[in-house]
Design a protein around this nucleic acid. Structure first.
Lengths: 194, 194
DNA sequence: AGACTAACAGACAGGTCTGTCTACTGGACA
DNA sequence: TGTCCAGTAGACAGACCTGTCTGTTAGTCT
């Protein structure tokens, strides 16, 4: 079960690279950060980086997977914290957005930002679509359990608000945006389940 | 009043450059298009481009101004077409989003896309904030005239929907997104003015 | 005719980027 | 002791990018 002991710090180089890439890519966008910078900041040799991530794109995709885990996790945690009623959970997930806005270095949606600088048919694009689809499916399920007559529509409306709140974050992380999104969510949920 | 006749085709070179930049920048992002490409596609000499736009950034800013005119113009036109009631205009402006989604080559919000690939304190960023502020001020005015008790909040909520709809456009121009935004707008306007 | 101006054509410098390659280091295992 | 392996260090090729500069062409005004 335990990782082979002779393999030094269990992939520490890979993790250092990915952590550094996460930080830099989010702050400046993948295109705005050269591999040399990632190498320098993570204190790793170039050959090591290219061994773990043969193309820079592989590193970008790994970065997006990391973002997906973090963001989707935050959404589910916020929904869970809102109680047992799916109706409250649909609104409560917006606390993840409020929290994100408050975080130092908040810079909007990593997926949208990355997709914006990637060619149309790229893997990055596909991965982003996949992420958005998974999140929306989860929200749709929540809406269905809340008893919404048109769960797909409500999910679409709520994810639209999420995207809008995240997109605006590229400019400033004003929490008033997240609050407005939260209040919109409440109004839409109430209207759908009236 | 008329432009000096001796000045050949009235800045045709400048316009050709700007039109080409508009098309290419929107499709691939300013960073994804080199000045050499703009030169080649607009059939202009390099010196001519750099005469009209001393730095590439100047061209990017001119591009954003063009986008601002087009998009803000489309929003106002859609609102105007919705009738005289400010309440209907607040919802009607979403027809601009529906129209944009349907357009060939639709690729989301040029401002957000460009801001996503620009450093934090850049002129591009400032111009984007300015654009969003102007649009929101206009929506706020509409909300006030519609009699909303909290026009700033309603405007924030509606522009959030606009941004969300536009942001999602980087991935696909599914008109169902714009329709969902429109229906959200109706629900939010009704809820605010109930 | 002469001066001016807008634009064309394209070489060039200097920098950055990705990705490859060689040579070396030190620990783990047989 | 010898082999393997992950990692370090850094040179290098080749592409691309911005911005500058030189020289030429053609039309317009005086």
């Amino acid at each position: 079960m335990s990782a082979p002991a002779h393999r030094v710090p269990a992939g520490s180089a890979r993790e250092r690279i990915l952590d550094t890439a996460f930080r830099l890519f989010y702050a400046y966008g993948p295109r705005g950060v050269g591999v040399d910078t990632v190498i320098a900041e993570s204190g790793v040799a170039k050959a090591t980086l290219y061994k773990h991530f043969p193309r820079k794109d592989d590193l970008v995709l790994a970065y997006l997977d990391k973002v997906d885990q973090a963001w989707f996790g935050a959404l589910r945690a916020a929904a869970r914290d809102a109680g047992d009623d799916p109706r409250d959970q649909l609104v409560g997930m917006f606390d993840a957005l409020v929290g994100a806005c408050r975080r130092e270095g908040y810079h909007g949606c990593a997926f949208i930002n990355t997709a914006a600088e990637s060619p149309a048919g790229s893997e990055v694009h596909a991965r982003t679509v996949e992420h958005k689809t998974v999140v929306r499916a989860w929200v749709t399920d929540l809406a269905r359990r809340a008893g919404a007559p048109e769960p797909e529509l409500l999910a679409r409306q709520l994810t639209l608000l999420l995207d809008g709140g995240l997109a605006g974050g590229v400019l400033d992380g004003d929490p008033v945006i997240a609050e407005a999104a939260r209040r919109s969510a409440r109004a839409l949920v109430d209207a759908a389940l009236a």
